[in-house]
Design a binder for these strands. Structure first.
Lengths: 364, 364
DNA sequence: GCGATAAATCAAAGCGCTTAGATACTTTGC
DNA sequence: GCAAAGTATCTAAGCGCTTTGATTTATCGC
């Protein structure tokens, strides 16, 4: 564990200058084959491993990208936060729950992260994943920012001032919710036509006409989804008498909304939900009061998380190409490095309706 | 995107030396409060983000740990590799399958990785995750090694010479399979008592006496599991007449083994499988020939992957504390950095039997 | 108010690599 | 066989930070 060998050691051993050693690794064809072998052999014997810090410093580029996977488990917005957690291990209680509850794993973020990982590896980029306790997000973010050439972040994971500050230094790309910072590159999906398509399916394939849109929290994504919903109703000449419900924030209140509706006997023919998570909550609420899906009411989601495939009845939804979104983030980052002055890009990816049982379709 | 501000800029702006700027960030109490504010303000205005490369170079430590998550999707050993894949996008075909097939996500590695991530974040370490195409694993590994202070790896993800070379430079910890390199730190689980316990359960709770051990591939983990199995039989005074089957490598042959047994009519009362993946294959094979589980034969696994909870019948298994294993890897790495000369550590974590339907127990 | 001691700041020397530009060594053309 | 035109290699100047030891400034006891 003694301090490792450096270019100097290798150079000495091979009887060349340190420049030649460096060239051997970075621009092999600038070095005569015989010399190269010599250097390589010396390096091998010494167990030489180039220091990325030194290289990064010299080159002004680290060769790594960063992903800030904020600790979504703790995000109050998704309603799975537990109470009274050990502040030192904030994530553990949730993680355990997550391990026990298939619904929670893998989530949207996990699949996007997977895409980021794969694309980085494919392109020979190192990937730094950082997460944080909500308390010190900024410090962590800044630390990561100092280590990478570009940063991929999830929306609302970090105050936008902090993000703006980072963005002055390195490219930043945000996934979805392209509303917060129009100066950044964004990867989003076609929310509008996704929901429009699934709504049309409910109308034309299942002959439904009394539909209601339900969403857990306000966001630009959800607004677009609502827009798609309303568009489909209009196109079909249906009235938009039901006002869409956005119980802001917690599952609790979404559950309440649903049970209120049931109690009043004003059940629509279908609930079009803004996310799969919302849909799962709605399905639970319906099950709790004995309403049958899709017999009494159809339910659809948006995202395509794994849980939707397992649940009974399986969830009809709009699947986001999450892996592809992750890959695209990497692509935009690398692009931006080459063209710093290009205007901000917002890449919008297509989605796919996945018909399953909860809308009344047969599986398989 | 102009080259960002450095300590020099901040120092100039704040009217102090670069040393003071550095101290402000690294050892704030060495700096007078008023000066500190000055520096911080200047840094803020300039949008200063310290360069980790420079810090790493100066300190001789990067402050990051690495995880080499070899692309298990491509590991022929787990039998899910597709044929004729685009060499440029080696993982994509498999990833798509994985997305479609719940069995494959999240896997063992995913959960361990999650543990590594969480523990790194908790300890304020950056985490570099690297994966690789099977072709250039070594190059990738070496690149990662140059970027981190310590490396966590999965077994057989990389040639052991390469690993040994890295280990000369930085601490390396391997998860499970502590057979390849006894010089490295290891995190393993108590395979023996896990399988012993689950076997005892089959014997005493379900009154079974004709048990058979089945494993997809030879490994030190699996050998220990077999040992636990045999131990339980002996303790119960049962004969070990059935020879355990290790169809080396592919699911194909494990499937064949099972259908052969069925064809011969020599079905045991239970299959104790070396891994959940193996168990899933076995269950498929049994289903294919119309053998009922657990009615005609009980089946158990080992690992506790998510798929075992969803499958019908749900899989009785021995759950490894995967997250904890990941966390422990980080712990060992950091430990090793402080005590380079301590003899190699092999930390063995306890496992937990999870009774579900496939052994004949009722769920819930 | 003075020297002595502690606290705050600074100057400067690296850390290990990359890469211009300089230098040495080979080819090539005639 | 020699100048011209490559090739191969080297010298040396950073890259942006940390940190030791020196220097300056503030604090204290008497």
């Amino acid at each position: 564990m003694a301090k490792g060998p450096t270019v100097y050691h290798v150079a000495e051993r091979a009887g060349v200058s340190i420049a030649t050693v460096s060239f051997t690794f970075r621009q092999p064809d600038k070095v005569k084959a015989s010399t190269r072998e010599l250097v390589l052999a010396a390096a091998e014997e010494l167990g030489y491993v180039p220091s990325a810090s030194a290289r990064g410093l010299a080159r002004g580029r680290t060769g790594a990208l960063g992903l800030f996977a904020y600790d979504y488990l703790l995000d109050p917005a998704d309603g799975i936060r537990g109470e009274g957690q050990d502040p030192l291990h904030p994530a553990e209680a949730d993680l355990e729950r997550r391990n026990e509850d298939l619904r929670l794993f893998p989530l949207y973020v996990d699949e996007v992260q997977r895409g980021v990982e794969l694309e980085c590896w494919r392109r020979g980029q190192a990937l730094l994943v950082g997460g944080g306790n909500p308390e010190n997000n900024e410090a962590v973010l800044s630390d990561i920012a100092g280590r990478v050439d570009g940063l991929a972040v999830f929306p609302r994971s970090v105050p936008s001032e902090a993000l703006a500050r980072i963005a002055r230094r390195i490219p930043v790309v945000e996934v979805s919710e392209n509303v917060h910072n129009r100066e950044l590159d964004h990867v989003t999906v076609d929310n509008i036509s996704g929901v429009r398509a699934i709504t049309e399916h409910l109308i034309s394939a299942h002959g439904l006409s009394d539909l209601m849109f339900l969403g857990g929290m306000p966001s630009s994504d959800n607004e677009e989804r609502l827009e798609g919903f309303l568009g489909a109703l209009q196109d079909a000449g249906l009235p938009t008498t039901r006002e869409p419900k956005y119980p802001c924030g917690s599952e609790q209140s979404l559950t309440e909304v649903v049970s209120d509706i049931c109690r009043q006997g004003s059940l629509p023919e279908a609930f079009v939900c803004a996310t799969d998570q919302d849909a799962l909550v709605v399905m639970d609420a319906l099950a709790a009061v004995g309403v049958g899906i899709p017999k009494d009411v159809a339910v659809t989601g948006f995202d395509g998380i794994a849980a939707g495939r397992v649940i009974k009845p399986s969830l009809t939804t709009v699947r986001q190409p999450m892996e592809q979104m992750g890959r695209t983030m990497v692509e935009l980052l690398l692009d931006r490095l080459d063209h710093p002055d290009k205007p901000p890009v917002a890449r919008r990816l297509p989605v796919r309706v996945v018909l399953r049982e909860s809308c009344g379709c047969q599986p398989g």
